[in-house]
């Protein structure tokens, strides 16, 4: 009796099961359509990741972290006086581009180190994800971003904020 009343008999010959199967079929069709459509859409140049957004996100983030790093080393600077600029691009040679997510972005940061006359630069390799978050990996000079930790002015070993850093920008 108990097995008889369970699903087996309930499923046979009633409208809701047919409705359920139709819903499942619709769902599968939709999923297949999505899988066909997504790569096609991705092929179009509709990315929200472009050079202007990357530049605008990386430069102030670097400046703020530079201030933090100098503070740890016992030197006081203000982010605004650095006037940091980022020049980012994607790939090299004939494949160079200024758009799209990828781990082949590179950035050159430049800022005024000691007064408006002295310009300093640093390099970063960027992995920019499609959701607008990126990871910047320091690529020289090594005393700035070459080591994961640094020795603070009080002698403690602390995380080097400029070794690698994360950030996000608005893609909407």
């Amino acid at each position: 009796m108990r097995t008889h009343r369970s699903r087996g008999s309930a499923r046979s010959a009633n409208g809701s099961t047919r409705g359920g199967r139709a819903a499942v079929r619709r769902g599968v069709a939709l999923a297949v359509a999505a899988f066909v459509a997504l790569p096609a859409l991705a092929g179009c140049d509709t990315t929200a990741v472009d050079r202007d957004r990357v530049n605008a996100a990386v430069a102030p983030t670097f400046a703020n972290l530079y201030v933090l790093q100098q503070q740890l080393r016992g030197r006081k600077v203000a982010a605004a006086t650095l006037k940091a600029r980022a020049d980012c691009a994607r790939g090299t040679g004939p494949n160079a581009s200024t758009r799209g997510a990828g781990d082949d972005w590179t950035c050159t940061l430049s800022w005024f180190n000691a007064g408006p006359a002295v310009t300093a630069t640093a390099n970063y390799q960027l992995h920019v994800k499609p959701d607008g978050c990126y990871t910047a990996d320091g690529d020289g000079p090594s005393d700035l971003n070459g080591t994961p930790t640094l020795t603070a002015s009080d002698g403690a070993t602390v995380t080097n904020p400029l070794w690698r850093f994360d950030g996000c920008f608005d893609i909407s």
């Binding site: 999505a34 997504l38 790569p39 859409l41 991705a42 179009c44 509709t46 990315t47 929200a48 990741v49 799209g100 997510a101 499609p130 959701d131 607008g132 978050c133 996000c168 608005d170 893609i171 909407s172």
Partner: peptide, 24 residues
């Protein structure tokens, strides 16, 4: 799907996107 560089409107409609909305 969100790992692909989708157009923003399509990405917005995915239910994985709201879980990252706090980044801003």
């Amino acid at each position: 799907a969100a790992m692909v560089d989708l157009p923003v409107p399509v990405r917005t409609l995915l239910l994985s996107t709201p879980f990252a909305a706090w980044h801003g």
